[in-house]
């Protein structure tokens, strides 16, 4: 059992948890993820490591309820436990494993969309601790969806906030900010790291391609084991098939077939929709979705 030391609701639909997992905390690096499973009957849910404390032996995760399993996670409190919590999975971000002197020469821009701020944070923090100040764009549909602003400001160079509806910071989507920074505000970047919903990563990559900025994205396909055993997480990268859980999750964004990846993510859409309704409505779930045929 893996004890939850802290469980906190953030702004918007987001939740933060600090979980005791000493083996993972000892070995993880930014860019890697864990898989959490609530109880015997739960699904295996991949979540990025958002922060870690090697001394305390803890891992911080930030998540947004999407389907039945993540919805159930929101009901867990400090003192509760996950039955299973495994990691660190995937490869660390190349920024943390490449030659530091080379990384220091680069001007780096992070682009965080929605809950993507969570996986961006440990990378920016790691760079800060190694004497590198990166710029960060945090984007969300509206003000309450902007995450980790203060935390990010403490470790980044410039932080640019933008909301689609203009309720906070700049107005417009993150790609507009990238264009403004590079085309109108005299900024230049050697590397962009974009993490967020697939659709946001897709458009970010289209923009950075135009601007000639190499771009790394963190892919979040459906996964089962997270160790290379099932192939559920396969993606087309360039001409090659890659398993996101062991070859990634970070890839060259300009080589990803986002349209195919987005379609794969929808695979269990209807089945999950039903499961989610069941959790949300609890005992009051009596048909209505038209699929279960009433009482099961």
């Amino acid at each position: 059992m893996y004890k939850i030391k802290k469980a906190e609701k953030l702004t918007g639909p987001n939740y933060l948890m600090v979980v005791e997992a000493p083996r993972i905390a000892k070995h993880c690096l930014p860019g890697q993820f864990i898989i959490a499973k609530e109880d015997e009957k739960g699904e295996r849910i991949p979540l990025t490591i958002c922060d870690y404390d090697r001394e305390e032996g803890t891992i911080t995760i930030v998540f947004q309820p999407i389907g039945a399993s993540t919805e159930k996670f929101t009901r867990l409190k400090a003192g509760d436990s996950f039955r299973d919590f495994v990691g660190p999975l995937g490869k660390p971000s190349e920024l943390c494993t490449d030659d530091l002197e080379e990384v220091k020469k680069k001007k780096i821009l992070f682009v965080a969309g929605g809950v993507g701020a969570a996986p961006v944070y440990p990378q920016v923090k790691w760079l800060h601790e190694h004497g590198i100040e990166a710029d960060v764009i945090i984007g969300g549909r509206t003000k309450e969806l902007i995450l980790l602003e203060d935390e990010m400001k403490a470790v980044a160079g410039n932080v640019y906030i933008t909301t689609d509806d203009g309720s906070y910071g700049r107005t417009g989507v993150v790609t507009k900010v990238i264009e403004d920074l590079v085309q109108n505000e005299g900024k230049s970047y050697d590397l962009c790291v974009a993490i967020g919903p697939m659709i946001m990563m897709k458009f970010t990559c289209m923009t950075t391609k135009k601007l000639n900025i190499p771009t790394v994205v963190s892919m979040n396909p459906i996964m089962v084991d997270g160790t290379g055993m099932c192939g559920a997480c396969r993606l087309t990268v360039g001409d090659e098939v890659k398993f996101a859980c062991v070859d990634g999750p970070e890839f060259d964004g300009h080589l990803i077939d986002f349209d195919a990846a987005m379609k794969r993510q929808m695979m269990y859409k209807t089945e999950e929709g039903r499961a989610l309704l069941k959790v949300r409505e609890g005992d009051t779930h009596h048909g209505g979705c038209g699929n279960c045929g009433g009482d099961e």
Partner: peptide, 8 residues
């Protein structure tokens, strides 16, 4: 939940 090569 221990992956040798990752967790240790």
């Amino acid at each position: 939940n221990v992956i040798i090569g990752k967790s240790t």
